[in-house]
Design a protein around this nucleic acid. Structure first.
Length: 570
RNA sequence: CGGCCUGUAGCUCAGUUGGCAGAGCAGCUGACUCUUAAUCAGCGGGUCCAGGGUUCGAAUCCCUGCAGGCCGACCA
């Protein structure tokens, strides 16, 4: 039953599994286990006077165990938290047969196993609320040892911290690092809060295609795939915008979607190839209305999560209390660079960029230059929630022209902690203008801008049927979650962040050197060690590696005898 | 893509000028009927990321590769 691929501890657990079976205990029972309480319900509501919870049944994973002869303590962790259990030999086994305690509990169960207990709640002499166990059921035998994280006086010992292992084995991370679960609970709460708010407004949650023939709605490099029976390329969506606007054309007044989008670009602390975005489109509204709506989302989410609008983020406290300042992009650039860029030509903007020490290249148009100046010199200043409004027309091909200035568009981005959190427009609904803007994108593309948008003819046709004045907004849910949970990395708010493939360790196999030695050994066993070494003609290092490999696999044996070191086949 | 750092027991980490591979927790054996990082006694556990080189001898020095982290570049 020995398997050399298993560690000692894994082997011991498999042996325990076998022992349980021999005792007639199914380590993986099929029957439902009827739980009537959770750990947190007991911890929060146990009352010494009332002496309540006298008949509880709880299941969970054993996270620690302290055995003291005939009595033991252990901690069970369920989905709500941890509670201590007290296991007394003669209570668990009232008769003569003490197997359940002496063998099953003490010997064949391990930290990480899932068990169910029945008993009553009491408070120990040390003051800890605990379950006095009368009956115990094995629900799952764990074969892989869990990292043991211990805590005392708020200090954590032996924490499971290696980021790679945490992300690759999130299940382990979730088991041993309870604060991780909290982030994901908050993530879901964020989405639920938003969904409730939108539904309260009467807006309609929809689903639109992930596989798209033309990836539109944003400037980004897409993933490409292929549909076999249609024999056409399809792209994974980079945004939902164009489909949601088609639905506004179709007559919905407000539509929203929480969607996975995909961008075939770099991965880092803030970017994952697949990420979650909420996009919402509301008819008969403009971007000013959308600013108020966006503020309301942020404030509601902060309150739902923290009970306050003030949220810690790194070294800052972000206050999501409405209203947020509204600053035009030109004002922002003027404030942080001293340059007034209104009415400037492309050449003048390039000159300003040079003076500001910003690198430019000839493919950059006016919009891109302004974007670059803002990104380099302004963006990071906006720590508290701030709306940056009125973006240049060149960088906003889906946005309606500004009602007061045709060089600008009715667009805002919500900046928090120096980063973009949301992006919104008064949506462009003039089909002729839209076609010209797409064609401008095409020109940029020919000039070398590989982010410029494709032309979606069907979307243009939809606009020609007529879309009411509409405001739309997109918000990065991963980023919002990072902000709201004080997580420095996107990997901390995704259950399964994208990782490089795990490399399988090569199987234990004889290499050429080892095979050579074995052949020689078969012909001359036993043989003097130095003689064998000379026969192989291997370097010292290679010899050493190979012979150690063989002895490690118990294929050869080195013995010290009177005449010197002797090698033989084992 | 570039710079810096890391890779040693199931987990967290030491490892001196190159000289038998270490600790705590976890595990195993035993003691212990209210402990809580339980305690006490004893024991086992390693492809030192991989490959190559220098050397009598490498976890340690050199080269190459792999994986990861941080920072930057590119990129929303």
């Amino acid at each position: 039953m020995n398997n050399p691929a298993l560690s000692e501890q894994e082997q011991i657990r498999r042996n325990s599994l076998q022992k349980l079976r021999e005792l007639g205990i199914d380590p993986y029972p099929a029957a439902q286990y009827h739980v009537n309480i959770t750990a947190s319900e007991i911890i929060n509501n146990f009352n010494d006077e009332k002496n309540n919870f006298q008949d509880v049944c709880l299941a969970g994973r054993m996270m620690s165990r302290r055995i003291m002869g005939k009595a033991s303590f252990a901690e069970l962790q369920d989905h709500t938290g941890r509670i201590q259990i007290y296991v007394n030999r003669d209570e668990l086994c009232p008769g003569e047969d003490k197997t359940m305690y002496n063998d099953v509990f003490k010997k064949h169960l391990d930290i990480g196993d899932i068990i169910g207990v029945k008993g009553f709640v009491f408070r120990t002499q040390m003051g800890e609320i605990s379950i006095h166990v009368k009956e115990m059921t094995v629900l799952n035998k764990s074969l892989h040892p869990l990292p043991i994280v211990k805590e005392k006086d708020g200090k954590t010992y032996d924490a499971f911290t290696d980021p790679e292992q945490r992300y690759r084995m999130r299940y382990v991370d979730l088991i041993v690092n309870p604060q991780v679960k909290d982030v994901f609970v908050k993530r879901t709460k964020i989405i639920n809060t938003m969904r409730e708010m939108f539904n309260g407004y009467g807006y309609f949650e929809v689903e639109t295609p992930i596989l798209q023939p033309i990836p539109g709605g944003a400037a980004a490099r897409p993933f490409i795939t292929h549909h076999n029976s249609l024999d056409i390329p399809l792209y994974l969506r980079i945004a939902n915008e164009l489909y949601l606007k088609r639905l506004i054309v179709g007559g919905f007044e407000g539509v929203y979607e929480f969607s996975k989008d995909f961008r075939n670009e770099g991965m880092d602390r803030t970017h994952n190839p697949e990420f979650t975005v909420m996009e919402i489109y509301v008819a008969y509204k403009d971007y000013k209305w959308m600013m108020s709506f966006t503020e309301e989302i942020c404030e509601r989410v902060a309150l739902a999560l923290h009970g306050t609008t003030k949220v810690k983020l790194g070294n800052n406290i972000i206050d999501y209390k409405t209203p947020y300042p509204r600053v035009t992009m030109y004002e922002a650039i003027k404030e942080h660079t001293g340059y007034d860029i209104s009415g400037k030509t492309e050449d003048e903007l390039r000159e300003i960029s040079d003076k500001l020490g910003i690198e430019t290249d000839p493919t950059m148009g006016k919009g891109k230059l302004i974007d670059e100046i803002f990104g380099e010199k302004c963006e990071h200043h906006y720590i508290q929630p701030t709306f940056i409004t009125d973006y240049p027309i060149e960088m906003s091909p889906l946005t309606k022209k500004h009602r007061d200035n045709p060089e600008l568009t009715e667009r805002f981005e919500l900046m928090v902690n120096g980063k973009e959190l949301a992006n919104a427009y008064s949506e462009l609904n003039d089909p002729i203008d839209q076609r010209e803007r797409f064609q401008e994108q095409l020109r940029l593309s020919e000039k070398g801008d590989n982010e410029a948008m494709f032309i979606d003819q069907d979307f243009l046709r939809a606009l020609e049927y007529g879309m009411p004045p509409t405001s739309g907004m997109g918000m990065g849910i991963d980023r919002l979650t990072m902000f709201m949970t004080d997580s420095p990395s996107i990997q901390d708010v995704l259950f399964f962040p994208q990782m490089k493939p795990e490399v399988k360790k090569p199987k234990v196999e004889l290499n050429e050197d080892e095979k050579l030695i074995l052949e020689l050994l078969k012909a001359n066993s036993p043989i003097d060690l130095n003689e064998l070494k000379n026969l192989t003609g291997l370097s010292n290092k290679k010899w050493d590696k190979a012979i150690k490999g063989l002895t490690g696999l118990k294929l050869a044996k080195v013995e010290k005898k009177d005449e010197g070191l002797v090698v033989s086949i084992e």
